[in-house]
Amino acid sequence: METILSIRNLHKRYGRVHAVNDLSLEIHKGNVYGILGPNGSGKSTTLGIVLNVVNRTSGEYSWFGGNLPTHEALKKVGAIIERPNFYPYMSAQQNLELVCKIKGIGYHKVQEKLELVGLWDRKDHKFRTYSLGMKQRLAIASALLNDPEILILDEPTNGLDPQGIHQIRDIIKLIAAQGTTILLASHLLDEVEKVCSHVLVLQYGKMLYSGTVAGMAQQTTAWELGASDLDALQTSLKDYPDLSSMKIENGRLWIQGSSPIDGAALNRYLAERSIYLDHLSERKNSLEQEFLKITASK
Rank of each mutant, 00 (worst) to 15 (best):
residue 67 N to T: 15
residue 58 S to P: 05
residue 33 Y to H: 05
residue 35 I to G: 01
residue 64 F to D: 02
residue 31 N to I: 00
residue 35 I to D: 00
residue 33 Y to C: 02
residue 59 G to N: 13
residue 44 S to Q: 06
residue 50 V to T: 02
residue 43 K to R: 10
residue 35 I to L: 15
residue 68 L to Y: 14
residue 55 N to F: 14
residue 52 N to P: 01
residue 69 P to A: 14
residue 68 L to P: 01
residue 60 E to I: 00
residue 71 H to N: 12
residue 55 N to H: 15
residue 59 G to H: 11
residue 46 T to E: 00
residue 47 L to Y: 01
residue 70 T to F: 05
residue 36 L to G: 00
residue 57 T to H: 03
residue 67 N to H: 10
residue 57 T to P: 01
residue 37 G to F: 05
residue 65 G to V: 10
residue 58 S to H: 09
residue 40 G to W: 02
residue 50 V to P: 00
residue 50 V to F: 06
residue 58 S to D: 13
residue 62 S to F: 06
residue 52 N to L: 09
residue 69 P to Q: 12
residue 47 L to T: 02
residue 49 I to S: 01
residue 44 S to P: 02
residue 67 N to D: 13
residue 39 N to Q: 10
residue 68 L to I: 03
residue 69 P to E: 14
residue 61 Y to E: 08
residue 68 L to F: 14
residue 47 L to N: 04
residue 49 I to V: 08
residue 34 G to K: 00
residue 60 E to M: 08
residue 38 P to A: 12
residue 43 K to H: 01
residue 45 T to S: 15
residue 67 N to L: 15
residue 30 G to H: 09
residue 63 W to N: 06
residue 61 Y to P: 00
residue 56 R to V: 06
residue 44 S to F: 08
residue 70 T to G: 04
residue 70 T to S: 13
residue 41 S to C: 07
residue 60 E to F: 05
residue 70 T to Y: 07
residue 38 P to I: 01
residue 48 G to K: 09
residue 67 N to P: 01
residue 33 Y to R: 05
residue 66 G to P: 11
residue 41 S to I: 04
residue 41 S to G: 12
residue 45 T to R: 08
residue 33 Y to D: 03
residue 53 V to Q: 14
residue 32 V to E: 06
residue 53 V to N: 07
residue 32 V to F: 04
